[in-house]
């Protein structure tokens, strides 16, 4: 499995990969620092799943979801954000993200991710 993490924080990229590796140790991980880089990398890396932050410079996560799905309608995007607002959650799900998870990732949230991916 290939997983792309789009987040402007290196710390957040590392903690997300570290957490995901506990359930998917053999997956291949790539990182991008903003929406623009994320979309570019998607085209070459072709990940199975994208973990997308929302508040990022250059192109934020909400814009990136729209552009990414325009270009790659098959993209499976999981939003991983500190924003706890219900309205934001609804907006990104309406935009086409398949799941919204609040940072930080913990064991319960990893369980949700596993269930989502494995059905």
């Amino acid at each position: 499995m290939k997983i792309l993490i789009v987040d402007d924080s290196t710390f957040s990229q590392k903690t997300t990969i570290k957490a995901l590796k506990t359930i998917y140790p053999d997956a291949t991980y790539e990182t991008a620092d903003d929406g623009i880089e994320g979309i570019q990398l998607y085209g070459t890396f072709l990940p199975d799943y994208v973990f997308m932050d929302l508040l990022m410079p250059n192109m934020n996560g909400q814009e990136a979801i729209v552009h990414l799905l325009e270009k790659f309608p098959e993209a499976k995007i999981i939003v991983l954000s500190a924003d706890v607002q219900a309205a934001v959650r609804e907006e990104v799900l309406a935009a086409g993200a398949i799941k919204f998870i609040n940072k930080p990732i913990n064991a319960d949230k990893l369980g949700e991710i596993k269930q989502l991916i494995e059905g």
């Binding site: 924080s9 290196t10 710390f11 940072k103 930080p104």
Partner: peptide, 12 residues
Amino acid sequence: DVVKELGNIILN
């Protein structure tokens, strides 16, 4: 970067 991300999570 760590402090910024901590702050981001807390303030959000």
